[in-house]
């Protein structure tokens, strides 16, 4: 397994996403209880946590899909929950979001999935240019010959790739991956992990990767944070986080590597 060994990440120092004192509960059940987070330019930050610990809720709040109960969430300097609809849409175009189940539009072909946001964003683009751009991105993600397939005809790994292609086509500056290797076999997981690193290098994106897969965390993360009971309990490089006798961390590690 290759490892990034960039202790502490921190990119070139500019904060792209900043979260302060974030609280969120659903019907009186607290999910996030005081989350603080800074993500620096062009780093890959991994958020680890058990299912139901609120990882998806965290990035959905960052993307403006959910409203925080309290706290300040800033993305590229703008406070997300205070933006008007139009401003939010503008900001979201700079954010690529890979959803947990890929969330491909299941009534549309692969091409239409990718085209969908493209023709609405680049309104004056000629149809031939759109097709060319789509063919290019599909090629570069190893998705040749899938253009006219329906999502139901794709494998899990292909779905994730199409999900990534669909966001990359808008040239996002930030990528949010919600369990990118969830439900995939180990070999495909490794491929997706490599793809995440390639995307970071090629497009210079700032990313948050949510996962409970430690292989994914180790391969893709410049910095790892562990979410537990609504707070980050540890952060640092992968080794720093897991070099610990903390039961909450150890049980997580044991579960992943020793069974």
């Amino acid at each position: 397994m290759q490892d990034k060994h960039k202790d502490g990440g921190m990119g070139n120092g500019e904060v792209v996403i900043s979260v302060r004192g974030l609280y969120k509960s659903f019907e009186d059940i607290p999910v996030l209880e005081g989350v603080d987070l800074d993500v620096y330019n062009s780093e890959n930050v991994v958020v680890l946590g058990r299912s139901g610990s609120g990882k998806s809720v965290l990035i959905k709040i960052i993307a403006g899909l959910l409203k925080p109960d309290a706290g300040v969430v800033k993305v590229m300097g703008e406070q997300v929950d205070k933006l008007k609809k139009k401003e939010l849409r503008q900001l979201r175009l700079k954010i690529g979001f890979l959803f947990q189940g890929s969330a491909l539009y299941d009534s549309m072909t692969v091409k239409e999935n990718i085209e969908f946001s493209m023709v609405r964003h680049f309104k004056n683009m000629a149809a031939s240019e759109v097709s060319k751009a789509i063919a290019e991105i599909l090629d570069s993600l190893g998705l040749e010959h899938t253009e006219n397939k329906m999502p139901s005809e794709l494998s899990g790994g292909q779905k994730k790739r199409v999900g990534i292609a669909r966001t990359l086509i808008l040239h996002p500056e930030i990528m949010l991956y919600d369990e990118p290797t969830g439900g995939l076999d180990p070999v495909t997981s490794v491929e997706i992990n490599e793809l995440i690193n390639e995307v970071q290098k090629k497009y210079n994106t700032t990313s948050i990767i949510i996962t409970h897969d430690l292989t994914c965390a180790k391969t893709t993360g410049d910095r790892v944070l562990m979410l537990h009971d609504g707070k980050f309990i540890r952060q640092g490089s992968f080794e720093e986080v897991f070099d610990s006798n903390d039961e909450r961390v150890k049980s997580f590690y044991d579960y992943n590597f020793i069974q």
Binding site: F99, A103, L104, D106, F116, H121, T167
Partner: peptide, 21 residues
């Protein structure tokens, strides 16, 4: 059923993240 399944599979949120409403 159609919109319901789009909602629970996060397709509606995916649309919100793209340029479409």
């Amino acid at each position: 059923a159609e919109l319901g399944s789009m909602r629970v599979s996060e397709q509606i949120e995916a649309m919100e993240m793209s340029a479409a409403d």
